[in-house]
Design a protein around this nucleic acid. Sequence first.
DNA 1: GAAAAAAGTCAACATGGCTGACATAAATCC
DNA 2: GGATTTATGTCAGCCATGTTGACTTTTTTC
Lengths: 180, 180
Amino acid sequence: MADINPTLAPARPESQTDASAPRPDSLIDLIELLFFAYRDFVGDPDDILAPLGFGRAHHRVLHFVNRHPGMRVTDLLDILRITKQSLGRVLRELVDEGFVDSRAGESDRRQRLLFPTPKGQALAGEFIAIQSRRISRALEECGPGMREDAGRFLMAMIDPEDRAGVDRLIQHAERGRRPR
Amino acid sequence: MADINPTLAPARPESQTDASAPRPDSLIDLIELLFFAYRDFVGDPDDILAPLGFGRAHHRVLHFVNRHPGMRVTDLLDILRITKQSLGRVLRELVDEGFVDSRAGESDRRQRLLFPTPKGQALAGEFIAIQSRRISRALEECGPGMREDAGRFLMAMIDPEDRAGVDRLIQHAERGRRPR
DNA sequence: GAAAAAAGTCAACATGGCTGACATAAATCC
DNA sequence: GGATTTATGTCAGCCATGTTGACTTTTTTC
């Protein structure tokens, strides 16, 4: 990234900040780091998506379908917090191109349960691999303990009322049940 | 509900993980936590933006203009990594509505140097306040030391070749608004 | 004086959000 | 058994924000 224009000295009114007390200012660097970190993080899958004619929306959908095979459309809407129509467009493309399979539920035949096809699993695996590589590298640079610390920090950044749901979602995939 | 995908299901790493070396698979939870954390994080300013008829693009532009008063359009393009045309649209609205001021450079009159107006500073301050509040709360929940740890982790998540630039960007603004 | 740089603009298009209205099948309630 | 609710899908259109490509103007630099 290039240097910011160094030629001008702006006069700012509040430049007489008092460096002693913990200023709200002191967290701006974390705000910006989160911006840049996330930008690179979600940029990783782009190279894989582009040749397929897919975008980031496809990534998100396929990721969660793959993580929670058999999830309902409603579950997905709840996780992604987008409208049925927005999801429908992306989901249809994933089904048409053979990355996701949609079958009627056995107990409730109104439901369409979503499953990744082998092709879909492979693609989802690529996304996980490339993003895991970035995280893994970052954790190694930070030394031991950061895996847990980062997890706690990120969880604490989530709206308190959503944390239980997110936790269930993560745990759930590791136990093999459907989100409720 | 049975697990239909035994091929992906072994991605239940935690069951037989040895804690020594982080395997790629074990990082899926961090991938998802980052997704949810960032979603809530960037969702904060939305309530402020909506009544103004602005979107997240306006937020990003105003933030960096406010942090680096007198920056050139080129600098902003470099930070945001969007096209001149995309930026132009958003920037014009911010200027028209009196949040950003654009003046010709003194030493190089081709340049348009960007400054936040008092109104722009106030709005940018609101964004910083609400996002700082979330981070601050998260850090408190995590205990001491997390501020530095989170900073190191996030920096390590950035593409190595960009880190120096990001660091310069952050330092530059925090070191008083004087050119070096 | 020519070339390069900084910025702006026009036109067209893609992605992925959104609202509103409506359709269908299946489950559930009374 | 009929009414209602639920889960899903779909059409139509709009909006925000990204893209490419071509071109202009002003100013600086070589």
